[in-house]
Design a protein around this nucleic acid. Sequence first.
DNA 1: GTGGTCTAGACCACC
DNA 2: GTGGTCTAGACCACG
Lengths: 131, 131, 131, 131
Amino acid sequence: MFDLDLRSRHPIYEQLVERFKELIISEVLKTDEQLPSVRVLASQLTINPNTIQKAYREMERQGYIYSIPGKGNFVARVMREGNAEKLARLREELVKILSEAIYLGMKKEEIIKIISELYVMVKGGEKSDRS
Amino acid sequence: MFDLDLRSRHPIYEQLVERFKELIISEVLKTDEQLPSVRVLASQLTINPNTIQKAYREMERQGYIYSIPGKGNFVARVMREGNAEKLARLREELVKILSEAIYLGMKKEEIIKIISELYVMVKGGEKSDRS
Amino acid sequence: MFDLDLRSRHPIYEQLVERFKELIISEVLKTDEQLPSVRVLASQLTINPNTIQKAYREMERQGYIYSIPGKGNFVARVMREGNAEKLARLREELVKILSEAIYLGMKKEEIIKIISELYVMVKGGEKSDRS
Amino acid sequence: MFDLDLRSRHPIYEQLVERFKELIISEVLKTDEQLPSVRVLASQLTINPNTIQKAYREMERQGYIYSIPGKGNFVARVMREGNAEKLARLREELVKILSEAIYLGMKKEEIIKIISELYVMVKGGEKSDRS
DNA sequence: GTGGTCTAGACCACC
DNA sequence: GTGGTCTAGACCACG
């Protein structure tokens, strides 16, 4: 389900954060939906509850979820705007990766295609809100 | 020169790798050009030679340079093909970062603009090969 | 009415205590006035009666209300003196928050302004006693 | 030294954060000064290293210190400006505590005196930078 | 049953 | 030596 790589150089909690962010961004997990409880998920993935806890706190710090002690963890409202700083950081990462990709021969058309597909995915999910 | 940030949470050797890769990708350092020796660079940057050595070995592993024992480290030939694996990895990273950027509201036009600028930069450097 | 935030990380009973204390301090609720019964308030706010009960017991402990078994909960007499201990605690909190505010650049004038406004509010409410 | 209260309702790591912030605000700990290592402090205070780690990470999140893996934790540069949000939060806390203090009879003069003393302390420390 | 905190360890990467 | 991560537990407050 989460296909974690316990041997990876990336910490487990970071892998969890990435997977959950994907689910939230693609709106598989919707606003205010409850995430699996720390202990349930820990036993399902057979990893330590503290590691799940760390992942959840990191996601909260990044603004993707919120926590109600004694109740659970929930998907936060999307936070368009007020992210100038975060967007600047992403822009830098984008430049770095694109530079390498172009250098290694990735076609411009392929990149444009990726972008278009992603836009359909995210913006499509948005429209379903208005219905 | 390399504007290393000794306070950064990114390891110094990783910063070195990134800086060198930028120089190679932008063809400031050209194929078969010799890199500064480990000891010279270490004393210039006043950091531990082991750290330089580690950065060079990492770049070699990634295919950006090659080492001739007793001679030095040199920029590798550009490797336009035979990179299916590396390109697939970059594609994944690209998708991840683009997803987040789009989710946070980055405009499609801005992304296209970044791509175009980068293409001019890299492809421009390429032409100088033919001269 | 009480605008409780069920999603807040502050416990509900604590939010209740804060709201009631505000009402008592600003003398919207006057000495010996009866508070809503536990059960009535619980059904109005659609929260657990135990939570109301806990809030009332906490306020009693802090000296803001008193309870008459079988009758209800009532606003306690103002306790201007005999609070050396509580005032000392508040003084400490005040120092801590003011230190941080000053450190972060809050203007002295702004702090004075806040104090003056609050004095007008509280002392104004006091005068209505004499009428 | 840190007079921690292990029985307190406030978590140990939070008490640590408060004590350290006091030391930083009052400039007992100066910019770029190194904090005690996680393990040394843990053994000195006879508490778990993880608890120290948690406190340090929280202070980093709040912008008071920065961490260099493998080197240590260090006091961050003061960060005047760009704190509108944090100042707004402090303003609210200030209002709440002042309301209660005034209600319980704290004299206006006493509050002014506290403010003035704190200003001398913080602003005095600032001037020593210029010398 | 939920999250939040804490202990007593361990192993890793970095320098 | 340093911080960063992780495990395998435990106890607490909250609702």
